[in-house]
Each structure stands twice: as structure tokens, then as C-alpha cells.
Amino acid sequence: MEMLQEYWPFFVPLIASQFILAVTALVHVLRHPNYRFGTKAFWIPVVLLIQFIGPVIYFVFGRGED
């Protein structure tokens, strides 16, 4: 907790940018239900739980054709 207080100028922007990326990916997963591989049930936890890498993997490998 002490560390969080001391380093909030780092954690706040990190959490915010991770949040933006995760939400954008989540919206895309929900609105474009055809994926190159995997299912909705697979991609939702991936983009929400794997920080930064999850959404990137989804956008690079997982998303279907637009």
C-alpha cells in the first residue's frame, strides 16, 4: 500500500492506458463475433486479464476480417 501511495504518478497512467486498451478490445470482441481462431468465451478473459499483451494478441492474431 505504501508503495502504491508513493508511486501513484506511475500506476494511475498505467492502469488508465491498460483500461482503455482492454475496453477497446472487449468492445471489438463483442461486436465482431468472427475470429480467426478462438471463441468469444476465450477472447473475453484474454483481453481483460492479460495486461497489455492480451489486447495486442487479439488485435494482431485473433480478430476476423472487418
Binding site: 508511486y7 497512467p13 482503455i20 486498451l21 477497446t24 478490445a25 471489438h28 497489455f52 495486442v56
Partner: peptide, 25 residues
Amino acid sequence: RTHRLLIILTIFFMFGVMNPLTAKL
């Protein structure tokens, strides 16, 4: 529109924050 820009900006932003923090911690 395909979120390429967003991915690149957030990932590089994240690095920007992480680099000094990792060095410190």
C-alpha cells in the same frame, strides 16, 4: 479505425512509464 494507432500509442506509453519505474524498483 483498425486500432493500430491505439495499440502502438498505449504500448509505447506503457513502456515510457515502466522504464523509470522498473529502474527504480
